[in-house]
Amino acid sequence: MEKILEKAQKIKIIFFDIDDTLRVKDSGFMPESINEVFKKLHEKGIMTGIATGRNLFGVVPEVRALKPDYYVAINGAYVENACTQKVLYKNTFSKDLVEEIIAWLRTEQSEYSFVAADSLRVSKWDKIASEAIGPVYAELKENPDYYQTEEIYQMLTISDHDDQLKLPENLADKIRLVRWHPNSSDIVPLEGSKAIGCQQVLQELGLKAENMLNFGDGLNDRELFDFAGLSVAMKVSHPELLEKADYITDSVENDGILKALQALKIID
């Protein structure tokens, strides 16, 4: 613990995942202690960022109200200074790549969703899509050709056999699947990750990885846990993340973030 506390003294920016980290995904519950955390961090001059698989449309009002300094959205594919709204980085799919993905998903009898910077569309809205996407984004409009008019940063698979989907050779060297729900996986660039997005912020600020702490719980946080100077996993985190974490804290409902920052002596 002594080494961890030494690392904590170097922290100048903290990134937070949203679902089951800042707030409970299924119920939307966010403890009042989160507001206290952000207030104290701002008072101490420690910057804050949101690092999420969601796009800007999915950053709910109560999270925006925390006034973070940066948004690392869509698993690092879109990075924005939240104060100035300046876009620091974006990594979009080409139309050709989108069409290759769609062709593959159709052979697999899987529906899909397009993720743009501040909007989403699905190829089909049904019970399967509702169970996966509903708790995060609510009901989405259907438009299987949305990529023709919008920049696409990410796609999602949507099927009741998502665990059986396997990328064909022509796609395996371009994209990867990151499961986040029994019915859905994020489709992200092969080298894309939250870590790539957070690196853009550190570069903008002239900071190093050792100056960064992050909180997370899911498989899309793996690269970030390998990259950050200090990583904290929520109690409910995926086993892989628990193994990578420098520190494991309590659940959202039990004020896990506040407890961790107090234990690390970053805030009182």
Rank of each mutant, 00 (worst) to 15 (best):
D20R: 09
D20I: 06
L22R: 02
L22I: 01
R23Y: 14
R23C: 15
V24T: 10
V24Q: 02
V24A: 05
K25W: 05
K25I: 00
D26P: 12
D26W: 14
D26K: 15
S27C: 15
S27R: 14
G28L: 04
G28A: 08
G28H: 10
F29C: 10
M30I: 01
P31W: 02
E32D: 11
S33Q: 08
I34C: 11
I34S: 05
I34W: 04
N35V: 00
N35T: 02
N35S: 11
V37G: 04
V37S: 01
K39H: 06
K39S: 09
K39T: 10
K40Q: 14
K40F: 04
L41T: 02
H42A: 15
E43K: 03
E43M: 01
K44A: 15
K44C: 13
G45H: 15
G45Q: 12
I46V: 07
I46H: 06
T48A: 03
T48V: 05
T48Y: 03
T48R: 00
G49W: 12
A51T: 05
A51G: 04
A51S: 15
T52S: 11
T52M: 00
T52A: 02
G53N: 05
G53F: 04
G53Q: 11
R54M: 01
R54A: 11
N55D: 01
L56H: 10
L56R: 11
L56I: 11
L56N: 12
F57Q: 15
F57N: 14
V59P: 02
V60D: 01
V60C: 13
V60M: 06
V60L: 13
V60A: 14
P61F: 03
E62I: 00
R64K: 15
R64C: 14
L66Y: 00
L66G: 05
L66D: 09
K67Y: 08
K67N: 14
P68D: 10
P68K: 01
P68N: 14
Y70G: 09
Y70E: 09
Y70M: 11
Y71A: 10
Y71K: 03
V72A: 03
V72Y: 01
A73E: 04
A73G: 10
A73P: 04
I74E: 15
I74Y: 13
I74Q: 13
N75K: 10
N75L: 13
N75R: 11
G76H: 07
A77K: 08
A77V: 04
A77H: 11
A77N: 13
Y78Q: 09
V79E: 06
V79W: 07
V79H: 06
E80H: 11
N81R: 13
N81S: 13
N81L: 14
C83L: 12
C83I: 11
T84Y: 08
T84F: 06
T84V: 09
K86Y: 06
K86I: 08
K86V: 06
V87D: 07
V87W: 02
V87K: 04
V87S: 05
L88Y: 10
L88G: 07
Y89M: 09
K90R: 13
K90Y: 08
N91G: 08
T92Y: 07
T92Q: 07
F93Y: 03
F93V: 06
F93R: 01
F93H: 04
F93N: 01
S94V: 05
S94Q: 05
S94E: 07
K95P: 03
D96R: 15
D96N: 13
D96H: 12
L97H: 02
V98L: 10
V98R: 12
V98F: 12
E99Y: 06
E100T: 04
E100P: 02
E100H: 01
